[in-house]
Design a binder for these strands. Structure first.
Lengths: 339, 339
DNA sequence: TTGTAAGCGTTATCAC
DNA sequence: GTGATAACGCTTACAA
C-alpha cells in the first residue's frame, strides 16, 4: 500500500515528524545514523511526499493551465506536444481547456484556472476574442501569462508566435525566384492576424520584386477547406488565366488547388506552381508532393512553456524581468509543386 | 485582488472562521442575518474556496490523469476532446501524459500520476506494453482505472473500446453485398489487438458469405502509411489480378491504394472497390471520396471518462460496483470508392 | 541533535 | 447560534 506519511515513519522510528522531514531533506542538524535510518525506512515503505500538502503549504500547484481553441487540429495537438514535454521535464503538470474559439468560453476557462490556483497560464486566444479584460485580470492577480500562436499586441505579457509575415515573404520570394511572375494568393478570413500577416508577407515579396501588386489576385477562403481550395483555384484560373503560381495560406487549401489542376489537366508545376503553408504531414502524400512552409510547431509549445515557467520562478524570487516577445523562424520546403 | 480566505471574511465581520464556513455552506444552524452578511461580503470580495486546501482536507485532487501513446494523431486528439469535455462538465480537470508507445515510459507516467494523487486514471495502453504490473499496482492502491482504445483482456477493470471485429465484419459484408467476391485485406502489425480484431471481422464476413478464405489475400502494413498503401496495392494487384475490392485497416493506407489505382488507370469502384477505416476527415477530400467506417471516437473518450468518474464516486461511498466493459458500435459510410 | 509549535485554508465535532 | 479545537501532511522558526 502507499500513502505513507512522515508521521508513519516517525512513529515506527520513535522520533518526531520534524526529524523525519529534516532527515529526508538533508538538513545538517540531524545525526547521521538517524538520517540513514529514516532514509532506509522511507525507501522501504516507498514514501512519497503528498503533493496536496505541499501545494497548500507552498501556495503553488506545480500545474500550468493551457487554453486552446480546439484540439482536433493538427497545429494545436503539435503545440501541446511541445508544451507537455517541456512542462513535464521541468516538473509541471499541464491542464488543458478548450475555448472553442469563443471569447465567452475563453473567459470562463481563464476564470476556472484562476480559481484552481494554477501557477501560470498559456493561451492561444480565440479568433473572435477582441476583449482581453479576462487576461488583464489574470495579470492583475499576478499569475504569469504567456500568449502563443495568436497574439494580442496591446497586452503587456510574453508572447511566442510564428513569424508569419517573413514566412510568407520567403515562400513568395521562392516562387518569384523560380520564375513565376503572376502569383495569386489565397488568404484566410480577414480579422485573423495570422492570415493578414501572411498576406502582408506576400504583398511585400511581390513589391520587393518590383512586380505590380494586383489586389484582384488575392482571394479569401472562409472555410479553409479542401473544397474552398478547389473552388478558389477554379475561380483564379478563370479570372486570371495568366496566373503561374498560387500561394495558399494552408496546406489543405493548397491540396484543393492541386486537385483542381489535376482534374483540369493543368500541369503542376510546369504551368502553375503551388505553394502551401504548414507542412502538414499529408502534404508529403500528394502527387506531385506539395511544396510548403514548415513551421516549428512543437518548438513553439516548448518555447512558450519555457518562458512561462521561467516567469513563474522569477515571480517566486520577486525578480520579475522584462516580457519577451519571440517570433519563430520558418523554412520553405520545396517539393514537387514548385519549379 | 483575489486569494480571499475565510479568515479574511471572518475578521472583517468579527465572527469566527467556522461561522463563515457554515454560512457559506447553508448550514441551518447559523442566523439568517449572519448568513446574509457573510454571503454578501464573500460575493463582494469575490471569495473562492482554495482548492489546494480542499484537496488536502478531502484527500482528493479533483483531477484525473490520462496516458496516451501520442497526441499528434487524429484518433487520440479526438478522444481527448471527449475526455476533457466530459471531465470538465463533471468538475474534474485532466492531466495528460504521453507514453510514446513505450512500456517503460508508460510505467513511469503511471508512477507520476500515482505520486501526484490523481483521483483516477485513464490509459490507452502502449502498443508494446505486454506487462501490466504497473496497472495492477494502481488498482492495488485503490485508484480507479479505466482502459480505453487498446485494451488488455486479463486485467480486472473497466474497459471501453471500439467494436473492431464487428466494424470490419460490417464493412466487408457491405463489400460482398455490393457484388465483390475477391476481397484483399490490408492489416496492421501483428501483435496489436485492434488490427487482429479487424482481421478477424474480415475473415468472419468472408466465411459467412461462404467465400473460401484465402490467407494470401491478407497483407501486412508495418508503417500504416500512405506509401505502404500505395506499395501494397501494387503488390495485391500484381499477385492477385482477380481482386475486386481492398479493405484497408485505416484511411491513410486506403488513400495510398486509391492513389495507386488512379496512377495505374484502375477504375474505382468499377474495377476495384476500396474501403477504409476511421472516417478520418481527409477521407472526404479524395476523389472519388473514400468509403470508410466511422468510429465514435469522441464518444469513446466521453464514455471512458464517465465510467471512471462514476467509479471514483462509488469508491468514496464504498459502493464499488462491477467493472463495465463497453464496446462502441461503428457505422459503414459508403461514399464513392465502393459500389 | 532533537523536538515543539505554528501555519497553509478548509471543515467536522463538540462545547458553550 | 456561535466558536474553539483538531485534523489533513508538510515545513520551518525556535526551544530544549
Amino acid at each position: 500500500m502507499s500513502n505513507v506519511t512522515l508521521k508513519d515513519i516517525a512513529e515506527i522510528l520513535g522520533v518526531s515528524v520534524t526529524t523525519v522531514s529534516k532527515a529526508l531533506k538533508d538538513y545538517k542538524d540531524v545525526k547521521k545514523e538517524t538520517r540513514e535510518a529514516v532514509r532506509l525506512l522511507a525507501e522501504k515503505l516507498n514514501y512519497k511526499p503528498n503533493p496536496l500538502a505541499l501545494n497548500l503549504r507552498n501556495k503553488e500547484s506545480k500545474t500550468i493551465g493551457v487554453i486552446i481553441p480546439r484540439i482536433d487540429h493538427n497545429f494545436y495537438s503539435n503545440v501541446l506536444n511541445g508544451i507537455i514535454e517541456e512542462a513535464e521535464s521541468r516538473g509541471y503538470l499541464v491542464i488543458i481547456l478548450f475555448s472553442g474559439d469563443s471569447a465567452k468560453l475563453e473567459k470562463e476557462q481563464v476564470e476556472l484556472l484562476k480559481d484552481k490556483r494554477v501557477d501560470g497560464v498559456l493561451v492561444a486566444v480565440a479568433t473572435e476574442a477582441k476583449e482581453v479584460d479576462h487576461l488583464k485580470e489574470l495579470m492583475r492577480n499576478n499569475i504569469p501569462l504567456v500568449l502563443f500562436d495568436k497574439v494580442v499586441e496591446d497586452l503587456k505579457c510574453s508572447k511566442v508566435s510564428i513569424d508569419d509575415e517573413k514566412a510568407a515573404f520567403d515562400a513568395v520570394t521562392y516562387l518569384i525566384d523560380s520564375g513565376c511572375g503572376h502569383i495569386a494568393h489565397l488568404r484566410g478570413p480577414l480579422p485573423t492576424e495570422t492570415y493578414t500577416n501572411r498576406y502582408l508577407g506576400y504583398k511585400k515579396a511581390v513589391e520587393a520584386a518590383e512586380i505590380q501588386f494586383d489586389p484582384s489576385l488575392v482571394y479569401v477562403s472562409e472555410e479553409l477547406s479542401f473544397e474552398d481550395g478547389y473552388d478558389l483555384a477554379k475561380k483564379v484560373m478563370s479570372e486570371h488565366p495568366e496566373v503561374d503560381a498560387i500561394f495558399a495560406m494552408t496546406d489543405l487549401v493548397a491540396m484543393g488547388c492541386l486537385a483542381f489542376c489535376k482534374d483540369e489537366g493543368i500541369k503542376v508545376p510546369e504551368q502553375v506552381s503551388i505553394m502551401g503553408f504548414s507542412n502538414w504531414f499529408m502534404s508529403r502524400n500528394s502527387s506531385p508532393k506539395l511544396s510548403t512552409v514548415d513551421q516549428p510547431i512543437t518548438l513553439l509549445g516548448k518555447e512558450a512553456t519555457s518562458i512561462l515557467i521561467n516567469e513563474i520562478k522569477e515571480k517566486k524570487e520577486d525578480s520579475r524581468s522584462l516580457y519577451r516577445s519571440v517570433k519563430l523562424p520558418t523554412k520553405v520546403i520545396a517539393r514537387e509543386t514548385t519549379r
